[in-house]
Design a protein around this nucleic acid. Structure first.
Length: 474
DNA sequence: TGAAATGTTGGGGCG
DNA sequence: ACGCCCCAACATTTC
């Protein structure tokens, strides 16, 4: 039945290149119906955050454009995925569904359910791996357990059989006689309007597969060489900035793996970051409670403070610590934050303010364009010290030292905290120590034009160590 | 993918 | 010349 159409359900794989579900489906020679479902209904689904929705809005346009170039188009549906799939199968007479796997606990449960439900109706389901180098069940210790330490995990990945070459995009997709009707993207209201808090996103980001490939090329050509050292400098643009593309699958790790020349300086360091992403996905698969529960149960007794004012100051970038505030404002203005500054600001929330990492995780998840359950939850638990292969709790970042070390000329701080931009370099990371005259000349009035520190770091550090003493041992 | 406290070393000033 | 002190620089330990 070559005329019976086939559904290709896009989820976090919004690309044509190296997309096994799409490639295998298109090779059948049957008409293809590409589908995206916005599911805010199924219980248990963490509603996609605001920044991610903005990204998705643009990505779906890009995907639709790419599909049209090969003779197809994207069908949009909104609602519980299970119901929308059933409807579309009914409408089109399709007898099979192709998708690439998701690994978030909710998605695993949903897909398992749907697979069963469709099989019962005699519908074939074919699932593939597009998001990872290895399936989470493929990498295990000699004892057959999942790795909980990064270094041996990554070594095992590097020693595993080479990854298959990325698949080329299909040259052409066969259209069904009639495309099923879909929603209009703009009716989904994925981007903010009043107020348009994403205005600056437009200058910063170009979602979509083409942009992802161009960015990777540019990174490998110009920036990877300095990556090993430069990656820690938020004042420079030396990181790949591929994270949102990776999250939505506009590029996949296999493509990166094969594009990188490992002989190049910086290449291994960069690939190991892809390794951390892989590690986080595997951890989330094996320990699905990671977004909600401490991986180390000892932390369940940690005396977190209830401090709504502190949380708000942190969220708004008004802590009085310039490097923290710059990071939090970069996040708000651009939907992204440099990794080094993520660590500094997370350390500040957890250790200086003693606020539960889960509140930080939730804020990042809502405001990052690259919000990714696996990376975000593991990252926060890493900083908190409650996670796998985590930083010890007593590693407490000093926001002044970190600022001076990684933003030595204050370029980053001045970009995002303009009200202190006129301060000399010497005081840019600690305005409260500047002589009155210097502050006056720079037009800075503490607690007026810019906050005084909401906590004293030295005493906050002592307080954090005391709090940690009270829990101890798993 | 820290920072602070504490310990050690060695050069120079000086009586 | 020598011992003593001071202290910066580096190393180690501790949180």
């Amino acid at each position: 039945m070559a005329d019976t159409p086939v559904l290709v359900w896009f989820r976090q794989d919004l690309r044509l290149t190296d997309n096994p579900a799409l490639s295998v489906a298109s090779a059948i020679g049957a008409p293809i119906i590409p589908l995206y479902v916005l599911d805010d209904e199924t219980p248990g689904n963490l509603r996609m955050g605001g920044a991610s929705r903005w990204w998705l809005d643009h990505s779906l346009v890009a995907l639709d454009t790419s599909l049209r170039q090969i003779g197809s188009e994207l069908v949009l549906r909104r609602g519980a995925a299970e119901r929308e799939l059933a409807r579309l199968l009914e409408e089109t007479g399709a007898r099979s569904v192709y998708w690439n796997r998701c690994y978030e606990p909710f998605a695993v449960a949903r897909d398992t359910r749907i697979k069963q439900f469709l099989s019962d109706k005699g519908i074939d389901v074919h699932s593939f791996n597009a998001a990872l180098l290895f399936e989470p069940w493929e990498i295990e210790t000699k004892a057959g357990d999942p790795y909980k330490v990064f270094t041996p995990f990554w070594r095992a990945c590097l020693n595993a059989p080479p990854r298959p070459d990325p698949l080329p995009p299909p040259a052409e997709l066969i259209c069904p006689d009639e495309f099923p009707k879909g929603d209009r993207l703009k009716d989904w209201d994925l981007s903010p309007t009043q107020p348009n808090w994403a205005a600056e996103f437009e200058d910063e980001w170009y979602p979509g597969e083409d942009a992802a490939l161009a960015l990777l090329d540019d990174f490998l050509e110009r920036r990877v060489t300095d990556y090993a050292t430069g990656r820690d400098r938020p004042d420079k643009r030396l990181t790949s900035r591929l994270s949102p593309y990776l999250h939505f699958g506009e590029i996949g790790p296999r493509q990166i793996w094969h594009a990188v020349d490992r002989k190049q300086p910086g290449a291994d360091k960069f690939l190991s970051e892809i390794g951390w992403r892989e590690f986080c996905y595997h951890l989330l698969f094996h320990f699905p409670s990671i977004p909600a529960e401490n991986l180390r149960p000892a932390f369940d007794d940690f005396p977190w403070r209830d401090d709504p004012d502190g949380l708000r100051a942190w969220q708004q970038g008004k802590t009085g610590y310039p490097i923290v505030d710059a990071g939090m404002r970069e996040l708000w203005r651009t939907g992204w934050m440099h990794n080094r500054v993520r660590m500094i600001s997370a350390s500040f929330l957890i250790k200086d303010l003693l606020i539960d990492w889960r509140l930080g995780e939730a804020w990042f998840r809502d405001t990052l364009v690259d919000a990714d359950l696996a990376n975000n939850a593991c990252g926060w638990q890493w900083v908190a010290g409650s996670g796998a292969d985590a930083a010890p709790f007593f590693r407490i970042f000093n926001p002044v030292t970190q600022g001076q070390k990684f933003d030595p000329d204050g370029v980053y701080v001045r970009r995002f905290v303009p009200e202190i931009a006129s301060l000399p370099d010497k005081w840019i990371h600690r305005p409260w120590d500047a002589p009155d005259q210097v502050l006056t000349e720079a037009g800075v009035i503490l607690n007026d034009t810019y906050p005084a520190p909401i906590v004293d770091h030295a005493s906050a550090r002592t307080r954090a160590l005391e709090a940690f003493k009270s829990i101890k041992s798993d």
